[in-house]
């Protein structure tokens, strides 16, 4: 019992990070029908940005988080402007290829600037852990680290903020309109370029926050961390129903908890295969995901 709960705790912490990345995938896909392959690298850059702001500039954690998010957000806006926007009318394969190109460029630039080796991430909070057994005897041995709680809380706060932006603001309404009917929205005078840029900005900010949180959680960042995390977050988005914002969060938690359980109960070396197995099973049997709806091709 306590073993199982421990895996759940680990799963929830990791899941919050996947969710932050998955949200960016799902928002961009919802509007542009583009798998932004570079999104994983944005998340990785968020981690490095965190190191820079915390160690080099010596900023406090909250200030660094507040700064890192818009910095990577602007990054993503520039990428959209120069690598995706010129291809908006092109076959859907074209931006997919540039997205892969952008992802390589970002990865290589980071590797050249910061080195291929993992960099230690400065710890903003004192290491502390709580034994659940102290309060609930049945959960003897379950340990929650303070970092896990912080990761979870920050992620939840950001998601609540995102929800407020999407549901309550004017630009959020424009985002929803674009994802429902791109052409009609344009005809109705929705400033599509601005809304798309904003979508990239918000999605990247969340991923950037995810990068900082993962650095804090695992005490390090490295240039290659975005590749696998990106694919996994995409899996989470597909699992939940791509284009559906709450779906990304649900998908992320299902994925991370399955991973935690597999690592706990069987071979940890198969951990990374879980995501892909889930991805393929979902694509086979319910490609529109848990909360999505099937689409019909018009003839």
């Amino acid at each position: 019992m306590s073993e199982f709960v421990q895996y759940l705790v680990n799963g929830f912490a990791q899941g919050s990070i996947y969710a932050l990345i998955a949200l960016g995938y799902t928002m961009v896909y919802g509007i542009l029908k583009l798998i932004n392959f570079a999104h994983g690298e944005i998340y990785m850059i968020g981690g490095y940005c965190g190191i820079f702001l915390l160690s080099t500039l010596g900023l406090p954690f909250w200030a660094a988080l507040m700064l890192a998010m818009p910095i990577v957000g602007i990054f993503a806006v520039l990428i959209e402007r120069f690598a995706y926007r010129p291809l908006r009318g092109a076959p859907r394969i074209a931006p997919l290829i540039t997205a892969i190109g952008v992802s390589i460029v970002l990865l290589e630039l980071t590797r050249l600037v910061a080195g291929a080796q993992p960099r230690p991430f400065p710890q903003p909070f004192e290491d502390m852990s709580y034994e659940l057994g102290n309060w609930i005897p049945a959960l003897d041995g379950v340990i929650i680290q303070r970092n896990q709680i912080m990761v979870f809380i920050i992620a939840i706060v950001l998601m609540v903020l995102l929800n407020a932006i999407v549901m309550k603001t004017k630009i959020g309404r424009a985002m929803r309109a674009l994802s429902m009917d791109f052409d009609a929205s344009r005809l109705m005078g929705v400033p599509i370029d601005r809304v798309i840029a904003f979508t990239f900005f918000i999605g990247a900010s969340l991923a950037g926050a995810g990068g900082m949180l993962v650095g804090m959680y695992y005490n390090q960042v490295e240039p290659y961390m975005g590749q696998l995390a990106g694919l996994k977050a995409f899996t989470a988005a597909v699992l939940g129903g791509i284009g559906v914002i709450p779906g990304a969060v649900i998908g992320a938690f299902i994925l991370s908890i399955s991973e935690a359980l597999v690592v706990g109960y069987s071979e940890s070396s198969y951990r990374d295969a879980i995501a892909f197995a889930i991805l393929i099973v979902v694509l086979m049997f319910r490609p529109w995901g848990i909360l999505g709806r099937p689409e019909r091709v018009k003839v």
């Binding site: 892909f276 197995a277 694509l283």
Partner: peptide, 21 residues
């Protein structure tokens, strides 16, 4: 389209991970 792309990435990685194990 892109769903196929991502599924093939998934299979490519699964093959690699299986070989690794």
């Amino acid at each position: 389209g892109d769903y196929l792309a991502i599924a093939t990435v998934g299979f490519g990685e699964i093959i690699r991970i299986v070989l690794l194990n």
